[in-house]
Simulated scan of single mutants.
Amino acid sequence: MTTDIWPERVRLRTRRRILQTVFFLLFILAPPLNILRFDLYANNLILFGHNIELGFTGFQYGFTASSEVILNLIFKAFLPLASAGLLLIYVAWRWGRLYCGWLCPHFTMVESLNKLMLRATGKPTVWEKAPLPLPLRQADGEMLKTSAWHWMPLLLLSIGMAFIWALTFLTYAIPPGVVYFNLAHGQLSLPQFLFITVVTGILALDFIFARHLFCRFGCSVGLIQGLAWMANRKAMTIGFNRKAAKDCHDCNNACDNICPMRLKPRTLKRKMFACTQCGECIEACIQVESPKGRDSLLKWVDGACAIHKTTGRDNGKDCF
Rank of each mutant, 00 (worst) to 15 (best):
T168W: 04
N182Y: 08
L205V: 08
P260Q: 02
Y180G: 07
F169D: 06
N257Q: 10
V288R: 06
R211D: 14
A254F: 02
I238L: 05
G177V: 11
E283R: 11
P260K: 02
L203N: 05
T276K: 01
A210F: 15
F193A: 15
L213C: 03
N182L: 10
I238S: 03
N257A: 11
W300S: 08
A304G: 09
T267S: 12
K299H: 11
L227M: 13
F193L: 15
S189K: 07
R262H: 10
C285Q: 00
N253F: 06
D256F: 10
L183W: 14
I202F: 08
C275S: 04
K299A: 06
A235H: 05
T276Y: 03
V199Y: 10
F273K: 01
G226V: 08
A184H: 02
N241T: 03
T171R: 00
D302S: 12
T276L: 02
A244R: 13
K243C: 05
P175S: 01
L194E: 08
R211K: 07
D206E: 12
F273R: 01
I224M: 04
G177T: 12
W300E: 09
K243N: 10
G201E: 13
T197C: 09
T237D: 02
G293V: 03
G222K: 02
R233T: 12
N182R: 12
A231S: 14
Q277W: 03
W229V: 02
M272T: 14
M261A: 05
H185Q: 11
R242W: 01
N232M: 03
M261L: 08
R216Y: 05
K292A: 07
V221K: 12
A235I: 05
S220V: 15
L297P: 08
A254K: 02
D247R: 01
C259T: 06
F207T: 06
R294L: 11
S189M: 09
V178D: 14
H249P: 00
E283L: 08
R294F: 07
G293Q: 01
F195K: 00
A254R: 01
A210R: 12
